[in-house]
Design a binder for these strands. Sequence first.
DNA 1: AACTTTATAATTGTATACAGTTATTTTAAA
DNA 2: TTTAAAATAACTGTATACAATTATAAAGTT
Lengths: 225, 225
Amino acid sequence: MNERAKASRVSTKDIAHKALREMIIKGELEPGQPIAEEELAKELQISRTPLREALQILELEGLVNRSLNGRINVAPISIQEVKEIFVIRSNLEGIVVEDAIDNITQKDIDHLTHLIKLLKMAISLEDYETIDRFGKQFHEYIYTVSGNKMAVKFLYQLNSMINRYRRLAHKSIGDTKQSVKEHKMILHYIIQKDKINAVEEMKKHILGSLNQAIKTVEKYEHTQF
Amino acid sequence: MNERAKASRVSTKDIAHKALREMIIKGELEPGQPIAEEELAKELQISRTPLREALQILELEGLVNRSLNGRINVAPISIQEVKEIFVIRSNLEGIVVEDAIDNITQKDIDHLTHLIKLLKMAISLEDYETIDRFGKQFHEYIYTVSGNKMAVKFLYQLNSMINRYRRLAHKSIGDTKQSVKEHKMILHYIIQKDKINAVEEMKKHILGSLNQAIKTVEKYEHTQF
DNA sequence: AACTTTATAATTGTATACAGTTATTTTAAA
DNA sequence: TTTAAAATAACTGTATACAATTATAAAGTT
């Protein structure tokens, strides 16, 4: 372990954190599944110390829960939670576009325009993974332009939870085309520096994906949880 | 240490976490001050293991920062950050009142009404500490009624940061009287189940306290940071 | 004297050991 | 067979030891 940490300058804790987050998002660690530190440490070939620190981060990120007796389990999935997450996210994304409008340059606008083009292209190829990636990039670019560190921090925290649900969802082409329209609208209002409508449109856009997420979760709740 | 943990059923980590949070909020650990684990562990009479876990929590809460070399220091205070925090909080509090309106009972309304009375009383006594406490209780009661666990989780996270600034602020009686009026208005709209205005009023209420906070920080930034 | 280079010290990151707690199994009694 | 008690095992929480890294001080060079 140590050599690796030395070589890559990344701590074992961080490696464990990212690995576990990925495992939870992918469902390799199932919702509700109990986690035994020793066992997991052996599996990851690390000691309990950095693993515990990683689990602590995951706990604060809401991906695992700790019960009174100290036992940790993978956080369950619930409709209630999805709803809460998306409403909060829609507000944060609203804050962030508003701030972005204050700082945006022509270069930024060009980049966002370019991303929308790429998005359209991916849709025409029905390449859902790429669609997802560009959509994400669009939002994250706005994060950066906003300069709102705190909001961005919260958004990343939320997004790691949202990714759990996103993995489960299967979008239709219709959904993605609608999504592009919305991205265009948002960009339009950004260019116009029309904060009120940009925020409004962004919120609608985020909440639009909520319904989709809810349907997915409902399906899972019936079968598993 | 162990006996204590056994007796109170609270972990050393949590004790350290709460103690450090308090120290940072009170300014006993000053903004920017570097933290040496060994030294601090000795001071708290605990080992580095639970201390590190506590520091990790504080890092995610935004009360300390970790630089690339692993050194930890108390998070600095900045106007930009205060602004970000308050805008986010105003949105979250908005979400929370909205949800609260869905669930509120007569008993809840009575309690909130009672809290406002207590608030008025504290103001007439110019007892600022009590004013603060009842104001906090008013908001936190709404948190509970909302049932929005995720939003509440974020709010508590924000509030621990906000408390750093609150400690520095010195309210005037005028401010507090205005605050009572706003609380009354919020409650009024809650009773009417008027979500739009309740949210609006809540946001205004939170942002109103922002200016006050900014002034305080400006003063500090000139002197210290 | 200023700048490198080397050596030393301080500090963080990880592993391991052990203590304390909780869960599970076994044994005993009804 | 069910229930209670005791013993055992599994697991978490904390302390300590050590390895690796970074900062500091000392020595050497130009």
